[in-house]
């Protein structure tokens, strides 16, 4: 039972982010920012163990590129259903910072 999750459903609050797997500690935090057609995505592992973050970022249908801003490399970011799917193993206190752009 989770009252707050129920309240979100009750009010019809949309979820801009969905996690495919939930860590035992609920340690994955995802934040997004928007700049026109681009997005900044920040994925944190606040937990004490390594966890695979499997995240879907809701975006309009289209073709997107994703770039890891820390490693300065392209990231595979397939469009699945109504969002961009991102997956990465994150060690404790790791942060994955991505730039999502339309092609």
């Amino acid at each position: 039972m989770n009252l707050t999750t129920g309240l979100l459903d009750w009010a019809g609050v949309s979820r801009p982010v969905e996690l495919s797997t939930i860590s035992p500690e609920h340690s994955i935090e995802v934040r997004t920012m928007e700049a026109g057609l681009e997005k900044l995505v920040f994925i944190f592992n606040h937990g004490s163990t390594t966890h695979e973050a499997s995240v879907r970022i809701k975006v309009p249908a289209g073709s997107y590129t994703a770039r890891d801003l820390v490693k300065e490399e392209a990231v595979t970011a397939p469009y699945v259903r109504d969002g961009i799917f991102l997956r990465k193993q994150l060690t404790p206190n790791d942060v994955w910072v991505l730039r999502l752009s339309t092609k």
Binding site: L8, A11, S14, P16, R31, M33, E34, A35, G36
Partner: peptide
């Protein structure tokens, strides 16, 4: 340019 995704809560 970027702004946080608007909140609905």
């Amino acid at each position: 340019r970027a702004s946080p995704t608007p909140a609905e809560v």
